[in-house]
């Protein structure tokens, strides 16, 4: 097991009261497995992964629970130790490639910086490796690209550079936070293709965050759907897409307009909008928007259960 998260809770103190961004999230990730995490804004998908990376620097945040990487507990690890893992064994790809690179340094320098931070190699050795990496992520002219500044590259190329950087120390775990959301579909297709190939080659486990069900279904081995800081459904890709159980998953899949076949006159829409984390209902957070909610949903939050394909819903549990 590469990553094992148990009952993770992250909360922030704010002026308007405490915000529980993550409320008891658990998941496992095996070697060279791709886990897709789906959710909307405020679902906690990004915060949970920042917690894994030890990148929640906000002094108002409290992190509880357990995050084990290859059996080693990361929660409460001294910053120094965490830093040794970050970028080295656990790497991250961010959403917006336009702002993720420091604008004043060349691409090659920025990637080499990471290699040199973790491996005691000479500058020229590091640069050789950078050229290899850029070739691997399909830069047409890797040597020339090394001396380019971020603003001289297109969005897709920048994201490739960020991916090359993430791969530079052969991480066992790669965390990607909506890496294709800011890109055009044509560019996205190339990046998804690249992630698949690299996973096969480097055997890295990948956690891929997205709001796009289509992306998840193309890439992930297993899927986890989040809503308002909790996991509402998990399962393998096939289980989740051929037999979605949680009303939220079903509704979300149903509201996506089809790309082929007959167009429905109206889309089956979900009423309302995602709840504010400051004012979560006592019971199931999806309850107020749920087509099948009944009394038990008001009183308490349904648990996820322990099955491989599980949904946090009283209706599902009852059936």
């Amino acid at each position: 097991m590469i990553l094992s998260v148990r009952d993770l809770r992250v909360s922030f103190r704010t002026h308007d009261g405490p915000v529980r961004a993550i409320d008891g999230v658990s998941f496992d990730l095996g070697e060279s497995e791709i886990l897709g995490v789906v959710g909307e804004s405020g679902s906690g998908k990004t915060v949970s992964l920042l917690a894994v990376m030890g990148l929640i620097t906000d002094p108002n945040a409290t992190i509880e629970g357990s995050i084990r990487y290859k059996g080693r507990e990361l929660v409460g690890l001294p910053p120094r130790e965490l830093r040794r893992l970050r970028g080295n064994e656990i790497a991250m790809i961010f959403q917006d490639p336009m702002t993720a690179l420091t604008p004043v340094y060349m691409i090659g320098w920025q990637i080499a910086e990471q290699i040199r931070a973790h491996r005691g190699v000479s500058k020229s050795k590091a640069m050789e490796r950078v050229e290899q990496l850029l070739a691997e992520v399909n830069f047409p002219n890797p040597h020339e690209a090394m001396s380019r500044y971020p603003h001289q590259l297109s969005g897709g190329m920048r994201q490739r550079a960020v991916i090359a950087m993430a791969l530079s120390c052969d991480p066992a775990l790669l965390v990607a936070d909506e890496p294709t959301t800011a890109l055009d579909v044509t560019v996205q297709a190339g990046i998804l293709d690249l992630v698949r190939k690299l996973r096969a080659k480097h055997k890295s486990a990948v956690v891929f965050i997205t709001h796009d069900m289509g992306v998840v279904s193309e890439l992930a081995d297993r899927v986890m759907v989040m809503y308002a800081g909790r996991v509402v459904e998990r399962g393998t890709r096939t289980e989740l897409f051929s037999d979605p159980r949680h009303p939220y998953t079903r509704a979300l899949l149903g509201s996506i307009p089809p790309l082929t076949g007959q167009k429905p006159r109206r889309l089956p829409a979900i009423p309302g909008s995602p709840p504010s984390l400051l004012r979560l209902p006592q019971g199931c957070a999806f309850g107020p928007r749920c087509p099948v909610h009944y009394e038990p949903c008001e009183a308490s939050k349904p648990g996820l259960g322990s099955g491989a394909h599980a949904a946090a819903c009283f209706r599902v549990a009852q059936a």
């Binding site: 990148l55 830093r83 970028g87 961010f94 917006d96 993720a100 420091t102 950087m165």
Partner: peptide
Amino acid sequence: EDYIRTARAKGLSEARILFRHALRT
């Protein structure tokens, strides 16, 4: 800035992040 978060994700020390990435800009 986002690139500071990237620098942290790279595993750089806080001092390096401050001097090389934040100060120059």
